[in-house]
Design a protein around this nucleic acid. Structure first.
Lengths: 355, 355
DNA sequence: CTTAGCACTCAGGGATGCTGAGTGCTAAAA
DNA sequence: TTTTAGCACTCAGCATCCCTGAGTGCTAAG
């Protein structure tokens, strides 16, 4: 049975009010809305029918109505009004993004923080690679007393380095030969190609620098693997403490502990493959702990064979319009930022101790 | 007036019990302790006197006693029994530390997480430099079509790099000359020496690579400044939700928001300069938000002109013995790890996009 | 000096009752 | 046929009250 226009209007009003107040909505509250020229009795009848049809729920007899999961679904898909970002909002989002972002993992963390701040909800951010990374170029620098700095330039234009200390004394000329060999044999290879076979072959031709080869190769594999993996960050978990549905510490705690990287690993699988914003309402979430929360996620392209994703977790009652608007804007801005091409560009990286 | 032995014993018992139960301690509970051969009436008298002397407090007339800040102070300084780490505990701490730690900022974050996990309390970790860092060595690598990779080796043995794209075409020989120049003029300098004067001087002699100099210098200054600054991380804030004193969401929220990097920046100033573990009980904390929490902190040496510090924040009622024991062990293990010298050592780092 | 005994205090936890927001139904009005 | 006014009913939330028991301080006897 189709919903009449009026029913839809009532449903929308209920959801809107409930989002604002977090309290069950009564018929009188609806009548007081502008544009509602019916008496409370009429609204009551409509609400009773909407309840029967499963769009609304009643916590107890003498309370108002609360949207059900089905109700939210309809609201998100059809009823909700576009939320228009104010200039202030777009500005603060853009300026937040414009801060320089360095390495992917740092970037992911920062984005999570920014999104969380913009929505005042816990936020998730991830970046995963669908095209494999390769090494474009090897360089070896002699740094005195048996120390060599290996510098790898990746297909993604990232540059990584590693300080290697070996008991062997090497000459500048040895390194030149070795790096030429590495560039000839190990560039543009998928990570899977780095096997013991390759290692043996390269070592046989390596001459004086042979002892360096295994270390460099391990470093290369490590680096490529790190590139493949999914980077993920969660931020702002404690923001849920501000929400009335989590006044109860136990509930809050349960949700927070389920908001770590591991528990959310399964999330991407649930999402459809298209770009754009998706909403998972309450029970639609697979993770049991998220049963009475909603997740809003947006995918976008980072370029360089990377796929980005940002999202937030919040009460089913969250302000979907506002949140999706902000998320989309965020994703769009990020895409633009990553697509920005050609201009003199600078990349940097650090390296520290490792034992 | 000095405390009698028996009074001390009673005070210790009160604190111990209160730490365990988080509930006011009554005279009867004390009598039931082994090694307490007095009746409840006697204990009551002692407790009354301890209260008069300010070591104990009474939430209300018919409740048991709770240690006051002064009481905790005495307990921490004189009364508390050494807590002996079990083999399991030392093992899990050591194995946690043995995971490889890379760059300082990553390391700081990881340590914060580990400490928090080991104590089940929010933890703070920081590393700050007291000796200035310098650059030991510059290398420039030509990476095709106007791209140059600048590789800087610091006095701390960290290696950082940056990909620079310039519209100018440079030859291998230009870079050789330039890097020789940089190594001659800009190594072993304190960050303050990098002024416009130096820049001008170097650029005058730089020839073809002159346009690179400002970029490299900016990178150098950035890197050194980052080295100077204090790295700090907080982890496990939500652990306070498990504590009975923070069943109240508002309280928990207040504390959590005051546990960010900025608010804790003043902390180091409060601590004495010696290494070793220090306890700040309740009102001894300067930060107003920490008035009814305690902070336990340990300083230790990282080497390379760096000072490390780890600590936890918890209720005044926290198990000081256990916490200080674990913190000290942690600090010791970390010191050892950083002191471990000479063996073939490898350092690595990455670098990503920056616009 | 210690302890048994006793009167006193008071937080915390039911039980009870009231209030007001909200409902569903019916019957009159449009 | 649809809308609305009116009314009886429900029930969460709050305030009130009382009771219980843990804990106290004081006194007087051991």
């Amino acid at each position: 049975m189709e919903l009449t226009e009026r029913k839809k209007k009532v449903l929308r009003s209920v959801v809107d009010l409930y989002i604002r107040t977090a309290e069950p909505v009564g018929s009188k509250a609806i009548t007081e809305l502008p544009d509602m020229n019916y008496s409370s009795a009429t609204i009551r009848n409509e609400m009773a029918e909407l309840t029967a049809m499963g769009y609304l729920e009643q916590p107890h007899t003498s309370a108002g109505r609360v949207p059900s999961a089905v109700g939210y679904r309809l609201y998100v898909d059809e009823l909700m009004a576009e939320y228009r970002l104010s200039i202030d909002e777009t500005k603060s989002i853009s300026s937040a993004i414009e801060e320089k972002m360095k390495k992917v993992d740092k970037m992911v963390e920062k984005v999570a923080r920014l999104v969380s701040q913009a929505t005042d909800l816990p936020a998730i951010s991830m970046a995963s690679r669908y095209g494999g990374a390769t090494i474009r170029r090897f360089d070896l620098i002699l740094a005195g007393q048996g120390s060599v700095i290996a510098v790898l330039m990746l297909s993604s234009d990232e540059v990584v380095n590693k300080l290697i200390r070996l008991p062997v004394q090497l000459e500048e000329s040895d390194l030149k030969i070795l790096s030429a060999l590495l560039n000839a044999t190990m560039t543009d290879l998928d990570v899977s190609a780095f096997d013991s076979n390759l290692l043996e072959r390269v070592m046989r031709s390596a001459g004086a620098g042979a002892s360096l080869v295994p270390v460099i190769m391990e470093f290369a594999v490590d680096t490529l693997q790190k590139q493949c993996g999914t980077n993920m960050a969660v931020a702002g978990q404690m923001r849920i403490l501000g929400l009335p549905e989590y006044r109860d510490v136990d509930k809050a705690q349960k949700l927070i502990t389920s908001l770590d990287e591991e528990s959310l690993a399964g999330l991407p699988a649930v999402l459809s493959n298209e770009n754009g914003t998706q909403v998972l309402v309450g029970p639609e979430n697979v993770a049991r702990e998220l049963k009475d929360t909603s997740v809003v996620m947006t995918k976008f392209d980072i370029g360089d064979g990377m796929q980005g994703m940002i999202g937030v977790v919040g009460p089913t009652r969250m302000d979907y319009a506002k949140v999706t608007a902000r998320l989309s804007y965020f994703a769009e801005s990020l895409s633009k930022m990553f697509a920005k091409p050609e201009q003199p560009q600078i990349t940097e990286g650090t390296s520290g101790k490792e034992e």
